[in-house]
């Protein structure tokens, strides 16, 4: 009977765990929906900013080159890079942090291989534990991010990076986070936020590419003409100088938002798997319990019959 009691205890324990994971799954689902809503709500702003940059860049490119401290330029190299890694504060979310940290560690190794130094900045307690474990010093830890990052918080970090970058402290600033591809697919990604790609070069490329593909020389002439109808206040170049930092901020904000969405999806999936697994385990344990009980009964019966037979 000792064995069946043991199994019964395990059945109860598994049942309790199942209840917890199921609750966590539901919480993650609710948080995911909220995070998804926020991420969607922030999209129009970044799209519009990108659109404005595109339009302005083309105009600015026509009236001469584009110079900005945030753009890639051939300035003296410091061989120093800054890496911001966004991880989660809490665990129980499957491979979420592991995937991000793997990409981060690879990036660190790569930089070390090239003899560059990396300043590591971090969001999320899970990353902190990891880098402590591999003895990698973290130069800055942002601990005050919850699962609803606000624009103000992100703006402060972006402002700091832009200032440091413009002052020439770093060759590049990148962020490693879980990017949202689709609901069923997220990928840990390293994205360079500074220096920025030159939007003018991109605009010129697009202008050169599009009419060429269409084979209509008229389209090329029409596009810049249409743009010059704009009233700019102040000048396009000045506007662009104001818009570029905004792009950096929205890019970083987007990264934070996607990271939160990714975390909740990962937790949802992990907790669903845990709930399913505990259901299966429960079934298996119940079967084993019944078998143990049955064999105990059989043994008892055999003993009684044997005892009765020996009395005859």
């Amino acid at each position: 009977m000792a064995k069946s009691r043991e199994i019964k205890r395990r059945i109860k324990a598994v049942g309790n765990i199942k209840r917890i994971t199921k609750t966590m799954q539901m919480i993650a689902t609710a948080r995911f929906q909220a995070a998804q809503r926020r991420a969607t709500a922030s999209r129009p702003y970044s799209l519009k900013i990108a659109e404005l940059v595109g339009e302005l860049a083309a105009t600015a490119a026509e009236s001469g080159g584009l110079e900005h401290p945030l753009l890639a330029s051939d300035r003296p190299k410091t061989n120093k890079h800054l890496l911001l890694v966004i991880t989660s504060n809490r665990g129980l979310c499957g491979g979420y942090n592991g995937n991000i940290l793997r990409v981060a560690a690879a990036k660190l190794r790569e930089a070390k291989g090239q003899g560059a130094t990396v300043d590591l900045e971090l969001v999320g307690k899970k990353g902190l534990a990891f880098f402590k474990f591999i003895n990698q010093p973290v130069s800055q830890f942002y601990g005050d991010f919850s699962d609803r990052p606000t624009y103000d918080q992100v703006e402060k970090i972006a402002d700091k990076y832009m200032e440091q970058f413009a002052a020439g402290a770093y060759d590049s600033v990148s962020v490693i986070y879980m990017s949202f591809v689709s609901i069923s697919r997220q990928a840990a990604k390293a994205q360079q936020i500074l220096p920025m790609e030159n939007p003018a070069a991109k605009a010129v490329e697009a202008a050169a590419g599009a009419p060429g593909a269409a084979g209509a020389p008229g389209a090329k002439a029409a596009a810049p003409g249409y743009r010059s109808f704009y009233d700019f206040s102040p000048s396009p170049a000045e506007l662009l100088n104001e818009l570029l930092p905004e792009t950096v901020k929205t890019t970083l904000f987007q990264a934070f938002n996607e990271a939160v969405v990714g975390e909740q999806i990962a937790r949802m999936v992990a907790m669903k798997a845990a709930t399913d697994a505990s259901g299966k385990m429960n079934k298996e344990l119940t079967r084993r319990y019944n078998r143990a009980r049955q064999s105990a009964i059989t043994t008892e019966l055999t003993e009684i019959i044997a005892g009765a037979a020996s009395l005859e």
């Binding site: 926020r38 709500a41 922030s42 129009p44 702003y45 970044s46 519009k48 606000t150 624009y151 206040s233 102040p234 901020k249 929205t250 904000f253």
Partner: peptide, 27 residues
């Protein structure tokens, strides 16, 4: 007229007149 902040869309309705605070004065 639509007003968009990084976090959400605040306003989206038809209007007849808008006075916006440009950097160098109202427009």
């Amino acid at each position: 007229c639509t007003i968009v902040t990084p976090e959400r869309q605040v306003f989206d309705e038809p209007v007849v007149y808008a006075s916006i605070p440009a950097w160098d004065g109202q427009i």
